[in-house]
């Protein structure tokens, strides 16, 4: 009986410090955001913040719309540029690892440094900072996040399926459209989520590359918390909206392959 009461050090205990960290720095702040969302002017409890955001009084909804559009365009551009890159990387993967490295290398440089250097280049070229430069910065920053999952799925496609497709009468182009692309859909979906979510929530890129002319959802949240006073409430509501978007897209990725295909 005595033995049962004794604390037994099991491998599970190794996870406790991180659990504590998670509770303190992830769960607690989330709860605080949730509470903040219902508090207006420091003491009133109610749905005022939600009303303010969803009635677009402070322009929050418009910013969300703009961000979604920019996020969508960025993702589309990343997909259109990234798919061929990932395809050729996968095709010549065995013989050339240096190529893959070249595409991952930019990820090792801090994104702020990358973005600031991009700005300097644009200024040196005498380009006007605005929508174009922001989109460029976004695509440049998020392209690796599109290429990597695509590359992983494309590499893992069974070569025999491609041969089977050719055997059944498919030319090289048809193989790509009818076999390789459908089989790479899981990679496309995870590439989209890995690009789209950061693209709508980012603030630094748009701020730096448009000299704060273009105002995205991330910028708005940032402003509510850091610059304006007494607007923690609306900021929290916006954070919650962001969170819901993230959860929805993650649900989308975690659907199994067949469900993804039926959705698309």
């Amino acid at each position: 009986m005595n033995k049962k009461l004794k604390f037994r050090f099991s491998r599970k205990a190794l996870a406790y410090p991180y659990m504590a960290f998670l509770i303190l720095f992830v769960v607690v702040p989330l709860v605080m955001i949730l509470i903040n969302a219902f508090i207006t002017d420091g003491n009133k409890i109610g749905f005022d913040n939600f009303v303010e955001f969803f009635s677009d009084a402070g322009g929050g909804l418009t910013v969300l719309g703009n961000s979604l559009i920019i996020g969508f365009v960025t993702t589309l551009l990343c997909l259109v540029i990234g798919y061929p890159v990932a395809y050729f990387l996968a095709k010549y993967h065995a013989s050339n690892n240096v190529l893959v490295l070249m595409f991952i290398l930019p990820m090792w440089v801090n994104f702020l440094i990358r973005t600031l250097s991009t700005k300097t280049i644009f200024l040196a070229m005498d380009l006007e900072l605005g929508m174009g430069t922001v989109l460029f910065g976004m695509v440049y920053n998020y392209l690796p996040y599109m290429i990597l999952p695509l590359h992983t799925t494309l590499v893992s496609i069974d070569k025999r399926l491609i041969e089977a497709s050719e055997d059944l009468g498919a030319s090289k182009g048809t193989v790509l459209v009818k076999t390789i692309f459908p089989l790479s859909l899981p990679g496309v979906v995870s590439g989209i989520t890995m690009t789209f979510i950061p693209a709508i929530s980012t603030f630094a890129i748009s701020e730096i590359l448009s000299v704060s002319k273009i105002y995205l959802f991330g910028d708005a949240i940032n402003m509510h918390f850091s610059k304006a006073t007494n607007s923690f409430g609306v900021g929290s509501v916006m954070s919650l909206v962001m969170l819901v978007l993230v959860i929805v897209s993650n649900l989308f990725t975690s659907l199994n392959e067949e469900e993804v295909r039926s959705v698309l």
């Binding site: 069974d158 025999r160 399926l161 041969e163 089977a164 497709s165 076999t179 459908p182 089989l183 859909l185 392959e257 295909r261």
Partner: peptide, 8 residues
């Protein structure tokens, strides 16, 4: 060998 059926 091992059929190579299209999983999709």
């Amino acid at each position: 060998q091992k059929y190579a059926l299209f999983p999709h």
